[in-house]
Nucleic acid binder design. Structure first.
Lengths: 229, 229
DNA sequence: ATTAATAAAAGTAAAAAATACCTTTAAAAT
DNA sequence: ATTTTAAAGGTATTTTTTACTTTTATTAAT
């Protein structure tokens, strides 16, 4: 390697994952009891070392797979955190990711084994190191994404009602949306497909189940907000 | 250090900077003739090693200062690039940043010394490694930023005309904006302060110079696009 | 001194999008 | 048959965006 003389510029590199899920009409985060010192037993995000022969995306995907048993998870970089003192155990630079997973799909045994728990945002305990910051930035990213495209495909179960989708948005933005206007907006995007089945648990009339149309069918998705620039 | 047993997870870490400037009514990038092997003499972004005792932001700021002589430059993370084979010289993980600087303010001697050049986007030559990707992602970030807040404070000279600002936006988005509507939008944000002086070089009537109001004066800046969510 | 030329500045009308709010509907429970 | 409920489907108002027109301040030419 030509850069060997620069060996003192080497750093520990890890990834940390902010894992979003949606369960019982609440937006939740998968958090863990940390398994190693320092801060062993404290609440934290799940993370892992980045191996020499893998990219940070590969590492995050590997960590997620080890924990949830899931492949093909939605994953996006949040930001790199690199203050030399951020981790009292050593000078570790870490790349934060956020993921969205369908809670009902992942393997619970793995989660129990790792001392993990799904916790809704308002109930989230303080996390170790700068993990609270990571959560904050991940939320910002999620909100930004949700504001220019309709998300839910990665979080909601296969079939869901418009009310479920609206409630997901309420959870993400911590505000209420007008049911009629939200429905109008969502349906105008033409990304959903109505099933012939209804969810009868919430009302007399029942609410039609919908599912997201396959991405291949959807030629062009309008942004949620039309903008000129 | 408690993590010493994990020493094989150490990686070379560098930063690379996409430096935006605005000169002669064109959005430009500061690119460099690479000084070291491999790819010595080829066009590249400016980069540097991240030292053990600094954050990646500190490193990027240091690199920028060394090149331009400027402090307090606008700087934001773009994304981490980490494919093991991205740099043929070694397995280097790099955090890309983008910066905006006022071209007229920086020291030209430093730039000449480093074999640097301001080049407009359409004229940009192919860059080494994955630097073209970095430029693309930086541009996306810049566009996103410019679409929800009025930028220009970091790129334009102290005083400028609305036409200058509109032209900057045209360069960023590669499209024309209606002069009347752009003016109306910009002035409605109340972030500019009109001077009593005119630029007479572009028209008989002359165009008033403006400058950005101090950030302290500006209580709340409307986003460029009002959105509900 | 008057007029022509120019981009800046200001204004106006139409279209589109967002918002607030109202009515009807389908099914279940009484 | 009636009541109840959230869902579904409106409608009217307001706000924002877009397209286009008119006026203005100044210089240069006549």
């Amino acid at each position: 390697m030509q850069y060997d003389k620069y060996h003192n510029y080497k750093r520990f590199v890890s990834v940390d994952c902010v894992i979003f899920g949606y369960e019982q009409e609440r937006l939740k985060l998968l958090v863990f009891k940390r398994a190693i010192e320092p801060a062993k037993g404290k609440w934290s995000l799940i993370g892992g070392w980045v191996k020499e022969e893998e990219s940070v995306e590969d590492a995050a995907r590997r960590v997620l797979h080890d924990i949830t048993g899931l492949k093909d998870v939605f994953l996006e970089q949040v930001q790199t955190f690199s203050k030399p003192q951020r981790d009292p155990g050593g000078n570790v630079l870490t790349i934060a990711f956020y993921a969205m997973i369908k809670v009902e799909k992942h393997s619970n045994e793995l989660i129990n084994e790792f001392g993990a728990q799904w916790i809704s945002l308002p109930e989230l305990p303080p996390l170790i190191f700068d993990h609270d910051q990571m959560v904050q930035r991940a939320l910002e990213k999620l909100r930004l994404k949700a504001s220019y495209e309709m998300i839910g495909r990665q979080l909601l179960p296969e079939k869901f009602t418009i009310t479920n989708l609206r409630n997901l948005y309420s959870e993400i933005f911590q505000k209420q949306f007008d049911p009629g206007n939200f429905r109008k907006k969502v349906l105008s995007l033409k990304i959903l497909h109505r099933l012939d089945e209804k969810d009868m648990s919430e009302s007399r009339k029942g609410a039609f189940y919908y599912k997201f149309r396959d991405i291949e069918e959807v030629e062009f998705v309008d942004p949620i907000f039309k903008r000129s620039i």
